[in-house]
């Protein structure tokens, strides 16, 4: 389940993409709203970790306009309930998240965002692959001579 609380923590990590890579923009989304347990203490503790302008713009992309541009100073129950709904109850089940900088597409399927790339992993492993290839070659050369 991609909820806005998780989306607010995700940035593009494509190679070389290091600025303007957050927040990822939603496209072609299918949304389901599900109730979840309201915990005001948790919300008060978590607010410092939230990038507010990103949350506001992303929630509006999903058609929710209940958050104001500025984080209110008074964190009363009415506000916290609104915030809870935006962060926790809007589930993006299908769709795409697009990097505003490099336009990399991260698909969401069955509520799970795919942010892994096999190519990146192989590149990361290259030093190891190279050294094991060299060792093999060395062993072979020794056998031949």
């Amino acid at each position: 389940m991609v909820r806005l609380i998780t989306h607010n923590l995700l940035a593009c990590h494509a190679k070389g993409c290091t600025s303007n890579n957050f927040p990822l923009q939603f496209k072609d989304v299918q949304i389901v709203v599900r109730e979840s347990e309201f915990n005001p203490d948790f919300l008060r503790g978590f607010i410092p970790k939230i990038e507010w302008p990103a949350l506001v713009s992303s929630s509006r992309e999903l058609g929710d306009t209940s958050l104001s541009d500025q984080l209110p100073e008074m964190l009363d129950d009415a506000f916290l309930k609104t915030l809870h709904r935006v962060l926790f109850e809007i589930h993006v089940e299908e769709g795409v998240m697009i990097c505003p900088n490099c336009s990399h597409h991260y698909p969401i399927s069955n509520g799970i965002p795919n942010m892994a790339s096999s190519v990146t992993l192989l590149i990361r492993g290259l030093p190891y692959l190279a050294s094991s290839w060299l060792n093999m070659k060395l062993a072979n050369d020794l056998k031949i001579s």
């Binding site: 389940m1 995700l10 990590h13 890579n21 799970i112 965002p113 892994a116 990146t120």
Partner: peptide, 25 residues
């Protein structure tokens, strides 16, 4: 996700290597 649901603990999954998409934030 299914194990979280089964035990009423919501787990938020990202299909990614290590903490790649989270390091920035």
């Amino acid at each position: 996700v299914a194990t979280g649901l089964q035990n009423k603990i919501p787990l938020n999954l990202v299909n990614a290597s290590l903490a790649d998409p989270l390091l920035w934030r």
